[in-house]
Design a binder for these strands. Structure first.
Lengths: 118, 118
DNA sequence: TCCATGTATTCGGATAAGCGAATATATCCT
DNA sequence: AGGATATATTCGCTTATCCGAATACATGGA
């Protein structure tokens, strides 16, 4: 498993960072991705759903759009956004499970510390 | 598949962001993770491998350590760092494959644009 | 204990990224 | 064309984060 991975070059990592890591490095954008995964919708609806101002949502969507992480289709004057690549959600879900295990482990530590004090 | 995902709360996303996304939102830290995955090593060796100043590496390692993304063990005055959770590498590898498909698709587009011009 | 090696932290300055408010642009309908 | 709705962009400001240089801290051996 370990040796199946071809170590990426610095250049590739820079691309990876600019393309994906950067895009996911903002809570609001992650919220937007999950909201769109739950339900494709247009900008104003998204803004209302999340409680953010419309320009804020629009700016974040631009970042996601430039990286093809969301796709668009017009519906009259509105623009419906959807998740462009579901694997991005899979990535986020994997991160979530790592986070959950981490929190569980921390909670275990707290418990054993507590036990040790008794 | 789609309905198997429990939509995370804003609070959880904030945690996720602070814990993982934030940590991966920096090219040098990703380089460090891959270098440690390739070979656990101490700080100075890492700095030499990557060509970064030692304090820079140390600062980034602190960020990773605080999130348990790397683990440490002492070897005399040196501190050997290793990857703390290999799933983080899996996450990065998944991102890489998304990036590669994206680049391939872009390259296809360029090709068809080119063909259309002929 | 003192020195050598290795690691972590602090400081000031520079850069990048987000935000709110205002405004520009686009689409459709009459 | 002109107005209504919806979306995108720009501007100035604030905040967060990174970096290099200097320095403090930790460990083991003479």
């Amino acid at each position: 498993m370990s040796d199946a991975i071809i170590k990426p070059t610095a250049k590739e990592l820079s691309l990876l960072h600019n393309y994906l890591c950067q895009a996911l490095s903002e809570t609001k954008r992650i919220q937007i991705l999950y909201a769109l995964y739950d339900q494709p919708q247009h900008v104003t609806a998204l803004a209302k759903t999340l409680g953010f101002p419309q320009p804020t949502v629009s700016r974040h969507l631009r970042v996601l759009r430039q990286r093809s992480l969301v796709t668009t289709r017009r519906d009259g004057p509105a623009v419906i956004y959807s998740v462009g690549d579901e694997r991005v959600i899979a990535v986020l879900e994997m991160m979530r499970s790592i986070l959950h295990d981490h929190l569980a482990k921390q909670s275990d530590l707290l418990q054993s510390d507590f036990a040790a004090d008794m």
